[in-house]
Amino acid sequence: MSRAASLKRWPGWVLLVLVVAGLLAVGSTRDAGARTPEERVEEISKQLACPVCNGETVYESRNPSSANIRAEIKAQVTTTDATDDEIIAYIVQQFEAKTQLVPKASGFESLVWVLPAGALVCACVGLFFSFRRWRRNVDTVPDDADRAKVEAALAAEPLTEVDEP
């Protein structure tokens, strides 16, 4: 067996999985540093809709009202100990910001989260039954036992000549 072929056997894959797990663990858990105030302002402003624009976030919008909200978020971030959620609640209350951009996970709004999950489950169930049906079709192909039965039957009752009409 060549070296390349032996590398591709299962030990090579096990090594690969271990390396991937290690790299992901190192990369995803290492300290990226505390969020800067600018990063917090950015993240919060992406959660809020511009009160006077057409479907833009406070982060995207260049409207003066959005600029005012960004300034207020920055002031809250730099001068208070409020969490992101508290700042969002404050901004919604102070500026009558039309809405948050993330639907709630309760009540009727939760449907927007639940329906995709339901659709995925339905699709998976549908695929499961489809493959089972297809598998059953494949299983109807005669196997050795079937062939043996046919041969035995043919041996017991040899075909006779049929007279032409």
Binding site: K46, A49, T57, K98, T99, Q100, V102, P103
Partner: peptide, 22 residues
């Protein structure tokens, strides 16, 4: 996500927005 605000508005007569975070 795109039409959900219309559905909520039709049902409850209130405006919501579904944006980038969703």
């Amino acid at each position: 996500g795109t039409v959900f605000p219309l559905i909520v508005e039709a049902k409850d007569d209130r405006k919501i927005a579904v944006g980038s975070p969703f």
